[in-house]
Design a protein around this nucleic acid. Sequence first.
DNA 1: CTCCCAATCGAAAACGTTTTCGAAATCAAC
DNA 2: GTTGATTTCGAAAACGTTTTCGATTGGGAG
Lengths: 341, 341
Amino acid sequence: MKPVTLKEIAEQLNISVTTVSRALKDYPDISKKTKALVKELALTLNYRPNAFAVNLRTKESKTVGLIIPEIVHHFFSNVIKGIIAQAEEKGYLVIILQSNESYEMEKKQIQLLLSQRVDGILISLANGTADYNHLTDVIAQDKPLVMFDKIAKIVKCSKVIIDDRKAAYTATQHLVDTGCKRIAHFRGALLPQNSIDRFLGYKKALLDNNMPYDPSLVYICECGDNSFEEGKMNARQLLNDHKDVDGIFINTDLVAIGAITEFNEQGVKIPEDISIVGFSNWFMSSVISPTLTTIDQPGYQMGKEAFKQLYKEMQQVKNKEPIVFESIVLKTELVKRQSTK
Amino acid sequence: MKPVTLKEIAEQLNISVTTVSRALKDYPDISKKTKALVKELALTLNYRPNAFAVNLRTKESKTVGLIIPEIVHHFFSNVIKGIIAQAEEKGYLVIILQSNESYEMEKKQIQLLLSQRVDGILISLANGTADYNHLTDVIAQDKPLVMFDKIAKIVKCSKVIIDDRKAAYTATQHLVDTGCKRIAHFRGALLPQNSIDRFLGYKKALLDNNMPYDPSLVYICECGDNSFEEGKMNARQLLNDHKDVDGIFINTDLVAIGAITEFNEQGVKIPEDISIVGFSNWFMSSVISPTLTTIDQPGYQMGKEAFKQLYKEMQQVKNKEPIVFESIVLKTELVKRQSTK
DNA sequence: CTCCCAATCGAAAACGTTTTCGAAATCAAC
DNA sequence: GTTGATTTCGAAAACGTTTTCGATTGGGAG
């Protein structure tokens, strides 16, 4: 019942552990005959190298950690899928942790992963994260770290992102192009960089079109567990405050869908009375009515790229080369649907 | 730069490695004084036990494996969330693999997890899985294995499921109760147990209501990556074949949403012309129009229960007790919405 | 037969813990 | 001062690999 070890194989064949180990890995200094013998016995005994021992010797576990704010989330689950797919291709396993948008959690989880001695860490920051010592800790240990989507510009490490500012600009410009005169913005939480960038893109588009920027038209939502509800609330508030608004650029699809639902219930016509552009292109956005114009954000690809970069860095560490950081920016696309004219 | 070890602490304090190890774990046979010294130095040196060495010694890694058919999936991502939450509470990490509904993948991944020597495995079967040797392998090694949602009755291990048959019965009965006279069923793939059970529940409800069971009213879909498209296709087909059908019980929400979309496009009125009941209660189902009547399937809770059971079994293994298998059945609920009268 | 080189293998250390077993030291009691 | 119990600690083995460094063997050349 005990798992079979190199030693047992060695004893059965009357050779040394060393030879067995090397035979199994096709070292050139083992004769074809012994290699064949060893491999055959290993097969019949169903030998499996003890990963714990291998890890201890080689100081690597072929495992990476992934910290993500929320798993039940169309965009993020696509990212996860991409990461896992790419990791599997390279022979790595992925440990997933969910920060629940909490900085404290995130910190604890980074420590956990470091204790576990994963070979590298992938992370998308929680909304509440404003200090980065837990991350610089990782970097100080020369442990590869790649941030994606929700990043911190200050931290010196590789990043995989989209050009949020440009995408938001495009989205807002689309509202302008389709005739909107007064455009509101539902932005995400205050801290995250992508929330800031999307806001800046929105603002820039307004100014470039000679439209006044009115802070009272910018609504904040935490974009946590109840994004949908926040979308509804903000929509209701907007109807109260600003009856003249005829277009909204919304930070993320789920909030936009909340808003659409509210408008539908209140009898506000989309896009006749109000046009809406979302962000992320959740699958849901293509099936609600009206279907939602949005920015397609390539989650799966982002996951793949993030792992690829992490892999590169892990190789660099293995080869005792210095880690070179890269910033990868992925393309986004405006998907026009019924919620805009 | 090298991580600090017990040995270094021991040398600095001029005591033995043994003592350091035991001081850190509060063994009773170490004096308070040395404990304090050791702990203080460990803290200032930022000592972190080498997980690889600990794993090797203790033969456990505090890590479990999770194999799931598809990550980008509302129900499954809720399950994942539940599993991770519960695992974290117990100090375990979770390695996630995606089988992509492929039996071959699933087999390979089981082997991978066994090589990695995870302490336990959680799995929801792929649609294509019909032979279970890869699973009995796991059980034969006395490695805890818990199946959830898509299970195989034959395999002797713990299971966490819902009563699919009863839920399907309830769903179909609801269609009958609201006046449907001729009820179709879009079932999932042929092999999965839950697909079979839901079909049986549908059939039983018909017979109990003295309605004839007509095999031509049962449409199959693979429920893989393109469930939505399959829903549309089946709906189109149904309109062609059976104009008299006035109700459909659909195996899963995403397919149902595809069907609804198709019906909407073709001008078929829901629920006036056709009533629809889905399965799973995806979030999406509450925002499409018409909103979808469906069976709520507690994904998060299922994940929690699955891990709890796995944990129990891991404890049993640790205590060298025999593993006792349990089958846990979770409650479901009919959520009435606009797609039925 | 001697010498050298290539081919093939093994002994042992090392990775960093945990744990068993026992040794030393302290102390109280007589 | 002896005994026995208690407290406190250390030596060493063990977990299963990988890897370094030699050792042995055989064969061919001279």
